[in-house]
């Protein structure tokens, strides 16, 4: 009798133990939801690449200023542009047009990363942006109206 009771007790213990599986499961599920809920609020991965690109774009636009808004046509040069940007994570292309004269300077990075710009939305593709500025261009001592097209790409980290 005693043995039987003991046997029944063992079965009960097992059943009781099995019950803790769904208990734990349903305890953990809302806990995980709650934690993910707070993580969603508190932790955000901010992609600052567009801001980085805009800042480099601003810098690239001012690399050859001899005065604010006035670009020295003779100084436009790819190597100088690379020096000015001084970052391997960035490639840039400047296209300065003054009246009917045009000059282009671009970094090596731009050349090999630029084809990837078509995948701009992809996760690891470089971020590409472009902008245009009206500039005054000092061409051999006289100031002419001109346009500076800036294309910039930034490697995503």
């Amino acid at each position: 009798m005693l043995n039987k009771n003991l046997l029944n007790d063992k079965k009960g213990d097992v059943a009781e133990g099995m019950l803790w599986i769904p208990r734990l499961l349903f305890l953990l599920l809302p806990l995980a939801l709650a934690v993910s809920f707070f993580i969603a609020i508190l932790v955000s991965a901010i992609d600052v690449t567009p801001i980085e690109a805009a800042i480099f774009s601003q810098r690239a636009g001012t690399c050859f200023y001899e005065d604010v808004g006035v670009i020295d046509f003779a100084k436009i040069d790819s190597k100088e542009l690379e020096k000015c940007l001084s970052s391997d994570a960035v490639g840039a292309k400047l296209n300065l047009t003054v009246l009917d004269a045009s000059i282009v300077a671009k970094t090596d990075e731009f050349d090999y990363l630029e084809p990837l710009c078509v995948f701009n939305e992809e996760k690891n593709a470089p971020y590409c942006s472009k902008s245009r500025k009206y500039v005054a261009v000092n061409l051999e001592g006289t100031v002419h109206p001109g346009t500076l097209d800036i294309e910039i790409l930034v490697k995503k980290r």
Binding site: Q58, T62, D67, G69, H144
Partner: peptide
């Protein structure tokens, strides 16, 4: 990125 870039306006004012 909506910072003000006044360089195009400055360029225009310096244009002959």
């Amino acid at each position: 990125l909506s910072f003000e870039d006044s360089s195009p306006a400055e360029s225009l004012l310096k244009t002959s």
